[in-house]
Design a protein around this nucleic acid. Structure first.
Lengths: 131, 131
DNA sequence: TTCGGAAGTTCCGAACTTCCGAACTATGGG
DNA sequence: CCCATAGTTCGGAAGTTCGGAACTTCCGAA
């Protein structure tokens, strides 16, 4: 399998980040990873609300998040460990992630009516997800 | 021509806003409207950098921005007057627009290498663009 | 070592979206 | 009325996304 590509912090692009987070499924996945700081296994997130996301779509969602620079994924045995690259993105685009996640959290049960059933996470954890 | 559709403030959706602004051309158009508060004529914005955007594409970009609730368009004679709906969006999603525009402005001459040739507008004008 | 299962990726066709030229529709002026 | 101007709609080509089936990789058990 091709080694995973992660953009350098200075290569982060606003348009890629917005595009990645413009999909409610991906935003929900990312919000989960932010909340947890690190999530093991893509399949841990294979449902948004009550809708099951097929493996291939999930794999693609993770790829989009990864290539936008929002998460860092590393193989750990048979599964994937995904970290939010919160600190790096925040350093380059201050306030961007917080306001986007807040916007989704504050928008009511609309986000594919599933991502708002769990408690909103307005302020992300500041655990050092950088590196 | 069909009367123009504008979503109500409570119908604004984060995903639609992010999708609208994920396109660098549209983001540049929107940044211009924000900077000016109000822009007359779509064709006033028909070039981003040195690239000319065809009329039909422009019309579509304006439609996407309008239907995301980012701008309000009204016919004024033969041309269109476009206002940023800054106050309404800000009221519902505080900080969102500012951090997105800041992200683009701070990203260097990359945004289709044209939108950064003019001075960045980190903080939007607070002229009452609501209504 | 070999088998089997679990986790992800790749492939590829169907469905959807975006782009842009050409034709069309409003609006105002002469 | 006719023309010019400013935008919109149509429609086809090109590109993107979605998801099922098949494939790869890794690990534990026999």
């Amino acid at each position: 399998m091709r080694p995973l590509f992660h953009p350098a912090p200075e290569d982060l692009q606003t348009s890629a980040i917005l595009h990645a987070l413009a999909d409610p499924n991906r935003a929900a996945i990312f919000a989960n990873i932010m909340r947890a700081g690190c999530v093991e296994a893509c399949s841990a997130l294979s449902a948004v609300g009550d809708r099951v996301i097929p493996k291939s779509s999930l794999s693609n969602h993770f790829k989009v998040l990864r290539e936008a620079g929002l998460i860092r994924s590393e193989r750990h045995g048979v599964e994937m460990r995904n970290h939010a690259r919160w600190a790096e993105v925040e350093a380059r685009f201050p306030g961007l992630l917080v306001s986007i996640l807040n916007a989704y959290a504050g928008e009511g049960p609309r986000m594919e009516d599933g991502a708002a059933e769990r408690p909103p996470a307005p302020i992300p954890p500041d655990n050092g997800s950088s590196v």
